[in-house]
Amino acid sequence: MTPTLDSFVDALKEHIATPKADLEHNIRAVLAEMVEKMDLVSKQELDRQKIALQQANQRMDALQQQLEGLQSQIKK
């Protein structure tokens, strides 16, 4: 390319880069706001809740067995 054309292309790239960066920043901000409004949880939090639920179910099963044992003792 000619020096004039090279400088024109460089100037054009600079002018295009600024709106692109602004647009990307704005899109990221909008997406972050949308995700926050959706009230999403992280995978780690979901995993913690699954473990807590499993433990609660195990405890409930143990209590159910205890209750059945006590009921059978009462019936004797």
Rank of each mutant, 00 (worst) to 15 (best):
D47G: 00
A29D: 14
A52E: 15
R59Y: 11
H25K: 15
Q49T: 07
Q58A: 01
K75L: 04
I16S: 07
Q44G: 08
N26T: 06
P19T: 00
D47R: 00
I16Q: 05
Q65V: 02
Q65P: 00
K20V: 06
D47V: 00
K75E: 02
Q55S: 04
K20A: 03
A21C: 15
D39F: 03
Q54T: 05
A56N: 09
M34N: 09
V41G: 11
A11W: 12
Q44A: 14
E68Y: 01
D22K: 09
T4F: 06
V30C: 02
S72E: 05
S72C: 02
E36Q: 08
D6T: 08
K20G: 01
N57K: 15
A29E: 07
A32I: 04
D10L: 02
I27F: 06
L70N: 03
Q44D: 15
R28D: 15
A29N: 06
A29V: 12
L40P: 01
L63V: 12
Q73P: 09
P3K: 14
I27G: 11
Q66F: 00
L31F: 06
T18I: 13
N26D: 08
I27D: 01
M1D: 11
E24Y: 03
A17V: 05
K37Q: 08
E36C: 01
M34T: 06
E24M: 09
